[in-house]
Design a binder for these strands. Sequence first.
DNA 1: AATTGGTGTGCAAACGGTTGCGCAAAATTA
DNA 2: TAATTTTGCGCAACCGTTTGCACACCAATT
Lengths: 339, 339
Amino acid sequence: MSDKPTTIKEIAKILKISVSTVSRALNDHSSIGLTTKMRVKKLASELNYEPNQKAIQFLHGKSFIIGVILPELSESFFSTAISGIEDIAYKRNYTVLLAQSHDDAEREKLLVEKMKTQRVDGLLVSVSKTTSTYEHFEIFKRLNIPVVFFDRIPPIKDIHYVASNLETGTYEAVNFLLKKGHRTIGMINGPNTLVASHERKEGYIKAMLSNRLKFDPTLIINSDLTESGTIEVMDTMLNHRRKPTAIVTFNDYVALFAIRYTRSLNLNGIDFVSYANLPIINYMDYTPIASVEQFPYKQGKKAADILIDLINKPKSESGADQAFFNIVVESVLVVNDPK
Amino acid sequence: MSDKPTTIKEIAKILKISVSTVSRALNDHSSIGLTTKMRVKKLASELNYEPNQKAIQFLHGKSFIIGVILPELSESFFSTAISGIEDIAYKRNYTVLLAQSHDDAEREKLLVEKMKTQRVDGLLVSVSKTTSTYEHFEIFKRLNIPVVFFDRIPPIKDIHYVASNLETGTYEAVNFLLKKGHRTIGMINGPNTLVASHERKEGYIKAMLSNRLKFDPTLIINSDLTESGTIEVMDTMLNHRRKPTAIVTFNDYVALFAIRYTRSLNLNGIDFVSYANLPIINYMDYTPIASVEQFPYKQGKKAADILIDLINKPKSESGADQAFFNIVVESVLVVNDPK
DNA sequence: AATTGGTGTGCAAACGGTTGCGCAAAATTA
DNA sequence: TAATTTTGCGCAACCGTTTGCACACCAATT
């Protein structure tokens, strides 16, 4: 049937009026007579008229698209976050242009380029593990397109970000274990290069001290987060002169490895607490008794909200009085229902 | 510094040449002198010139954006599929505009509208569970924008789709169990309303018959896929006059419920085979001994490839000679490594 | 010397819509 | 009735880029 979409011009021609009148009629402009409006609208819907967004976007430089660059879409944390981002975008009438860096700094750079090319109205980024320079984001600053970093944030100044603070959650976790009567609590931490490792450690220490307990640094052991690394750490822990009765693990994978290992040794009675990355863990037989929840969905929503706010904010005059959103989503301990 | 992006006009003005010359120079048009080209390119990069894609897209009606509508982004199957889609899109120079229906038919309709509004070059859809009418996709047909359905495909004619056939995988699964010596194999199937349930059943039957075994329909029991539903079915199975020594479950969740239940009864020795939806299942202690893999990543890639092919295909003249891609990705049995 | 043939460049239209401004006709006021 | 305001609509510019066509210039061929 119809091959090319109807345009405003055709409507104008058929009705023998000018395009401007048609445009105004469709936009309910006050200066157009009621009868004309009706005639135009009627014909427009008959012809299945659809305004060409590309023309409109072009005309006043907005796309109503926000770009999102994440390390890995198939990771539960990120896909959940995306879900939150999309929900907010949907609500606020934006659409999400999505791309994944696969934790490759080069690809990330190209994606930033592409996002710029597509002229997104704003950009949401969780940086790749391998990203060490951040100039590729500068372009957006120059173009006055807001960028909000999210979860994995770069260690630079003057950026907007939303991230979770694991200190509070860890504090609660350790506290929870202490209240349960544990006195010797081990922690399988991540590499020191990660901010997250420090936050966990801080939380641990604070919990111990606020309970007037001595902090024993040898009970916190760094791991490379692999299965073999975890087993190694576990061996050390189990042979520690103060064998832990409870262990806080860096993430659910580590928890799984550790739990599996203790069970293979027929060891019971160690309570585990982990950080919630994996939804499925709730379905399992032997799980951590509690999890530190980081609310990826909530974080995603928050980040998207801030980004869209920034997009719609009247631009700061000289660009000097910029305020930067630094939102910290507190992590929280969630005690798993005993099954 | 720079507030508004540089345009081709400014370059032209500065160099005192026409915009057309600038445009051609930047595009390496053959009819532009070498010196002019160099001058233009030099200045362009100095000014950080970026072609305004909105103008270009507008000009020749392409956005290099493909729309993707999925039921639930945080579900492992879909997020993995998205990952495949994005990888292909990236490779072929498209970007992904993403949206989720949350399995809500109404929202799906609105999203289709939005995708149309954004004038995507093509659409990839996995329909919502609650979608029962499909007219909202007609618009795309009228606009000559290709739509490829994916995994959850609507029961209508003349559509492009990529989906997996679970019959083959199920056949292999049952065959595998038979080869292992099992003779009484139960199947926890899904509701009859799902195509997938029938495919599973067919696969089961074919495997039995091709091994010259009688098919006992009472060994296939439908479930509502909840935990309690699964336990009910398991009770029936375990009290069956022919108690199964192996069970094929509808999905990993069902497998988890069933395995947990048997273990709570201190029942061992039943082999389970499931369908791979959950990556984490590999990390667990008691898992199915094999999984029917549906290759969401591969399916996503394939669907995206077809879509982009369709986009770039010279349009069929009268629209009459349309051929429809109906790609079936065979599911395959994957035997889990014993831990 | 006249014709042909590049080579390099500019003009202007086109894509589809929005919008400031001007102008005519109708309605109101003096 | 004349002057003024309101109402309704059209003209034309504009957003940034591409591209068919024309054209001017210079060299090579007849």
